[in-house]
């Protein structure tokens, strides 16, 4: 298989989706979780449920023509839907889960994203051409790797959640395999794709902060990653990005976590506890 031919078997993937349904989980065993853990689960629910936002952002670009990618996305969305439903079921004993409120800037961003950005992106990315697909695949890998790390940490923090996190892990692994494969194939030999991917990686932010801001997400991020035991996972995510063609010195997760430090109260616990070296 040449570097420019993706090897991931999309047809096999779409044929055997893993739908993690709430009735497969012992929800009673996951009741009465400590508040910080509930906050972290709620944060993940809020991130995972933006399934169709992500699809919209990809499909208005030249990525929509990539039948391999759209075939993957249809099944990915299905799997994501059931993960979100399962997270909601875990949270429901404490009340119906809701997204954190938008910050002032976040509300403007949301208005822009919903009313203007699809149009601007459709025109801009179609002018950029198919190189933009590589950037989408890199971002897809990064978002998935970070969320997968969050689940891994969640299982370590509260063993009662391990049946959930253990079930999610193989789902995320397949998503990562697809994105990695596509990213490698599309970055190989394309200076334009590498440049666009680098720009996207540089601007990447922790998922879910675009509208609610760093303050609202800092608690869950602290819960998930403040422990030194999280550091190898953080480094592994950055190393995964750096291993992609043309992204050698990238460390997007470490940079994004720095965003929480910048937004934390001066001298506050967030500054100290979310710093990852």
């Amino acid at each position: 298989m040449s570097a420019s031919s993706p090897a991931f078997d999309v047809r096999a993937y779409v044929r055997e989706p893993v739908d993690l349904r709430p009735d497969q989980l012992d929800l009673e065993a996951m009741a009465n979780l400590p508040a910080p853990v509930v906050g972290a689960v709620g944060h993940l629910w809020s991130v995972e449920r933006t399934i169709l936002d992500l699809m919209r952002d990809l499909l208005v670009t030249p990525t929509h023509a990539e039948a391999r990618v759209t075939a993957f996305l249809g099944t990915w969305a299905y799997e994501q839907f059931w993960i979100t439903e399962s997270l909601a079921a875990v949270l429901r004993p404490g009340g119906e889960p809701t997204d954190p409120p938008d910050s002032g800037v976040g509300a403007l961003r949301r208005m822009w994203d919903e009313r203007v950005r699809p149009t601007v992106d459709a025109v801009r990315t179609n002018l950029l051409g198919s190189d933009v697909v590589a950037a989408h695949m890199v971002t897809g890998w990064l978002n998935t790797a970070v969320v997968a790390l969050a689940y891994e940490r969640l299982g370590a923090i509260d063993p009662r959640l391990r049946p959930l996190t253990a079930a999610v892990a193989p789902i995320k692994s397949r998503h990562l395999a697809f994105y990695e494969d596509e990213a490698h194939a599309r970055l190989s030999g394309s200076a334009g794709a590498i440049r666009l991917a680098r720009r996207t990686v540089t601007r990447w932010q922790w998922p879910g902060v675009r509208y609610c801001g760093h303050d609202a997400a800092s608690g869950p991020v602290r819960t998930l990653l403040a422990d030194p035991a999280a550091r190898p996972g953080v480094r592994a995510v950055d190393a995964g990005v750096a291993a992609l063609t043309g992204q050698a010195d990238a460390a997007p997760l470490r940079v994004a976590l720095g965003g929480f430090v910048q937004h934390s109260p001066v001298g506050g616990t967030v500054r100290a506890s979310t710093r990852v070296q």
Partner: peptide
């Protein structure tokens, strides 16, 4: 999936039941 794309840029996206339906429908 392209018809879905055209709908995701409208106010139809964001309606809870519509989102769930579109995922399965697609």
């Amino acid at each position: 999936v392209c018809y879905l794309r055209d709908m995701l840029v409208t106010p139809s996206r964001g309606e809870g039941e519509v989102n769930a339906f579109m995922t399965m429908w697609n």
